[in-house]
Structure formats: structure tokens, C-alpha cells
Design a binder for these strands. Structure first.
Length: 346
DNA sequence: CATATGGA
DNA sequence: TCCATATGG
């Protein structure tokens, strides 16, 4: 999922930090990416997600609620950016994902009847569905919490990058690297508090710290332009194209630097999709909107309780405790600072 | 992924 | 304060 720039980016460009080091910064978070990861991670050992008494999945709400409060408490100002319409050349990728999900669902049923717990968990993670209802409910919860969200016209990563470029956000936040191709000034990955990540297939957890990748530092280090970075991404493969067979990050960088012109390099590398010029233009100039405001509001405790406790069977004491933390974080970290002049007029 | 809890 | 383990919905 997403463009795979992992092996292109030198370790020296990945700046490890902790959440405290991001205090005061507005971060435009890829909502889809975030919710999807909660759905993948917040599960019982056999892969069963958290559910309310009606059997509706609540893992995404639990993750969103507690993580957002943690970030706010540490002084991070989160803005969630939701996907709009995908570009039409993403249809193939989306169909493939749907197909893989159906296969995983079948395998999950098999594993469950066979009583294979680890197998079941594996396939449950591959069978994740983020429904439009779940997305709508996440937006409702954010509103109740007083946390801003933005509806992107196209890809959320593109909108987040635009917000960073305008200076409305300090960085885009996602596990994927796409926002760098979309021109985000910075990308923050691994933005979580506890920083635990399960190693695939093993019962081991490793500590993972947030990392910041600055676009200008990356381009300078590689000696390329943003346009050339887009070309490399396309050669390596994106959600919109397969990438050139047998070419890894080193050769992709070489080809792009020696040829110079991004579109010529893409073709010289052997990328054959006929719609590839459109993909290049989409990364360079994606649909975005300036019609948003980033405003933090006081948490609406009644509404939070209605959604989490009444509707979805969250523990009222736990929720109340978290809401208290959110109220304090709002006062101390999120509330717009009033200038002395504003105070005089109000 | 996150909180809660109990023992070192 | 740290760690391991259980539980959250």
C-alpha cells in the first residue's frame, strides 16, 4: 500500500524523535491510514476485534479516541484528513485489494473452524473492512472531541501535503510515503505513544519511535528535484501503477539522475502503463481544497458519552477519565492562544 | 494500539 | 519506575 520509498530514504534523513519533541506542531493525519491501523492492531489473539453488544466493530473508535487524547496531552495538534474520490486510475488497485480481502475472509473462516488461532489472526488482519459507516462515526467522534477534520476532494495524503505546504500544518502524518511525492514539507511516521509494534509471525514486540522525514533534506541528500522523486516513486511502483520490473531504489535513482527529465526517465525505466503521464501529473498537481479551517473546540462530554458509552458500550468510568484528560489538554495545548489585544476587545 | 493492574 | 500479563468492546 502506498509508494514504497522505504529503501530509497537514507537512515540519516530519518530523524527519530519522541512525541514530546513535536509539541506545538499541527500534524495533518491521514485518517484512513490511522483508522486502518487501529482495525489491524486492536484485536484479541484470535483476531476478533473489539465489538459492541450488537456485534459492531469498535476497534477504530477506541484507537482514535485514546490516541488523539494522548497526542493532545503531549501538545501535538492533530487534524485528521479524510479521503475523497480516488483517481480513476486507482480502480485496478482497489479491485485487487477487494479480491485479496475476499480471499482472506475465506481463509479466516477455515482457520477459525480448524481452531488455528495465529492463522485466524493473520487472515483477520488481511480481511479488514473500513466501511463508510465507520468513517462517518469517526468524524462524529472527532467533532464531539473538538478535534478538527478535513474532507479531501481526492486522496487524503495529497490534501495533507497541501496543508503542510501552505504552512497550516507542520507535517503530514502517515505510515505511507505518498505525501512526500505530493510535496509535503515533512512526513511524520510511527506517530504513537506506546510505540509497540508486533513483529510479523512472532510473539515479539519491538519499540518504534516516531520519525520525521524532511522533504528538502531528502531531495538535497539524493541530489534530485521533487519531480524526479515522483519519477522514482512511479518507477518503484505506487497505488496507481505497478512499477518497472527488476528495478530497485538504486537503479531507479541512477536512471532518473542520468536522464534528468522525469517523464523520459519513467519510460526509459520500462514503465509501460499508458496512463502514466496522468499519474505523474496527479502527484505533481492533485485535487485539493483550501476550504477548511483548523479550529479546536472544547470537548462535548455528553456527545462523547452518547457515541461511546450509550451507542457502543464503552466503559463509562474509562471514558470519563479520558475526557478529563482531553479537557485539560484542550485548555493547555489546543485552545487558540488569545492575544492581549483580543482579550481587551472580548 | 491502548489502559489497568500487580509484582519486582 | 519498569516490566509482564490481562483486558478493553
Amino acid at each position: 500500500m502506498g509508494v514504497n520509498l522505504r529503501d530509497l530514504i537514507p537512515d540519516s534523513i530519518r530523524v527519530e524523535t519522541d512525541v514530546k519533541g513535536l509539541k506545538g506542531n499541527t500534524i495533518a493525519l491521514d485518517a484512513y491510514n490511522t483508522l486502518y491501523q487501529f482495525l489491524a492492531a486492536i484485536r484479541q489473539p484470535d483476531g476478533t476485534p473489539l465489538m459492541d453488544r450488537m456485534g459492531r466493530v469498535t476497534s477504530h473508535l477506541s484507537g482514535l479516541f485514546y490516541r488523539t487524547i494522548n497526542l493532545a496531552e503531549e501538545g501535538v495538534r492533530p487534524v485528521y484528513v479524510f479521503d475523497g474520490e480516488p483517481p480513476r486510475f486507482k480502480a485496478k488497485e482497489l479491485e485487487e485489494r477487494a479480491r485479496r480481502r475476499e480471499q482472506a475472509e475465506a481463509k479466516l473462516a477455515e482457520a477459525r473452524t480448524a481452531g488455528l488461532v495465529e492463522e485466524a489472526r493473520k487472515y483477520a488482519q488481511q480481511a479488514i473492512r473500513l466501511s463508510s459507516g465507520m468513517v462517518e462515526e469517526a468524524k462524529k467522534l472527532l467533532e464531539a472531541m473538538g478535534i478538527p477534520w478535513v474532507q479531501a476532494p481526492g486522496e487524503g495524503e495529497a490534501q495533507a501535503a497541501y496543508m503542510a505546504r501552505r504552512g497550516d500544518a507542520w507535517a503530514a502524518g502517515s505510515q505511507d510515503y505518498d505525501s512526500l511525492l505530493f510535496g509535503s514539507t515533512r512526513l511524520v511516521r510511527n506517530l504513537a505513544i506506546t510505540g509497540r509494534r508486533k513483529l510479523p509471525g512472532k510473539d515479539l514486540y519491538v519499540e518504534v519511535k516516531p520519525e520525521v522525514i524532511e522533504l528538502s533534506a531528502l531531495l538535497k541528500n539524493l541530489g534530485i528535484t521533487r519531480e524526479q522523486l515522483i519519477a522514482i516513486g512511479i518507477i518503484l511502483g505506487t497505488d496507481y501503477n505497478e512499477g518497472a520490473k527488476g528495478i530497485g531504489p538504486k537503479r531507479a535513482l541512477n536512471i532518473v539522475k542520468s536522464i534528468g527529465d522525469p517523464l523520459k526517465a519513467i519510460k526509459a525505466a520500462g514503465v509501460r502503463e499508458p496512463w502514466i503521464d496522468e499519474v505523474y501529473n496527479y502527484f505533481l498537481n492533485p485535487p485539493v481544497t483550501s476550504d477548511y479551517t483548523i479550529t479546536f473546540n472544547p470537548p462535548n462530554e455528553r456527545e462523547i458519552n452518547r457515541i461511546l458509552v450509550e451507542e457502543h458500550d464503552f466503559n463509562p468510568d474509562r471514558v470519563a477519565k479520558a475526557v478529563d484528560r482531553l479537557k485539560k489538554a484542550y485548555r493547555e495545548n489546543l485552545k487558540a492562544k488569545q492575544s492581549r489585544l483580543d482579550a481587551w476587545f472580548s
